[in-house]
């Protein structure tokens, strides 16, 4: 029973939503709105799950004094502190919460994202070697696209940005669409498997 009830819910709702996408009728639209209201009502509860998990994991680390448990203290302190700042002073501009956001959250996130530039550089250095004929094509394409992206490319020859555009629009897109069609079908198949109860791993455990 523990398995069957969720499966019945999934199957019924799943097929109802499939039907919904073909039925524009008001009844169908109203059902969808009604369902969305439930989603709105349920999702806030999930936030508490996340916060509880965070406290449990880090709390255990602190109480057991596992190596580097001090990081957990900082994590929890940050969480509590930011939340309190928001609750006490509000989130308008000029409040401590906003100040934290602008001076801690923003620069730190930007730093993480900026790391990408370095990693891409090193990944590119490793990847683009003319090891074989195909690899050489890849290498040339990469250089043209990179040049096409910056003014220097257009200054060298106006064909560089044009070729870069062609590479992106034709071979690149062709491959991408092929993968996307596969992905689309894979998604449909997985959804169908879930609807029919063939795939049940996500309910916990194996088959």
């Amino acid at each position: 029973m523990k398995r069957q009830i969720p499966l019945i819910i999934i199957m019924t709702l799943g097929f109802m939503f499939v039907a919904h996408s073909f039925i524009p009728h008001k009844i169908s639209a109203d059902f969808f709105d009604w369902f969305q209201d439930w989603v709105k009502a349920i999702s806030p509860f999930a936030v508490s799950l996340g916060v509880i998990s965070l406290f449990m994991v880090n709390g255990t680390k602190i109480s057991r004094k596992v190596p580097n448990w001090q990081y957990s203290v900082i994590t929890l302190a940050g969480l509590v502190f930011t939340a309190l700042a928001g609750f006490i002073w509000g989130t308008q501009s000029g409040t401590p919460y906003m100040w934290l956001f602008e001076n801690v959250q923003m620069p730190m996130s930007a730093t993480m994202f900026a790391l990408l530039a370095f990693y891409i550089a090193s990944a590119a250095y490793k990847a683009f070697r003319a090891r074989s004929a195909q690899a050489t094509v890849l290498l040339l394409a990469a250089i043209i696209v990179m040049l096409g992206q910056v003014p220097l490319g257009a200054m060298i020859s106006k064909w560089i940005p044009e070729t870069s555009k062609w590479i992106l629009n034709v071979p690149n897109l062709a491959a991408k669409r092929a993968i996307m069609i596969g992905v689309g079908l894979g998604m449909t198949a997985t959804s169908l498997k879930i609807l029919l109860g063939i795939e049940r791993t996500y309910l916990g455990g194996g088959d």
């Binding site: 550089a121 590119a124 290498l139 250089i143 910056v150």
Partner: peptide
Amino acid sequence: AHIMMIFFILIGN
């Protein structure tokens, strides 16, 4: 940075 990268790739090759 792009030019730098291209340079690196060329040197690497």
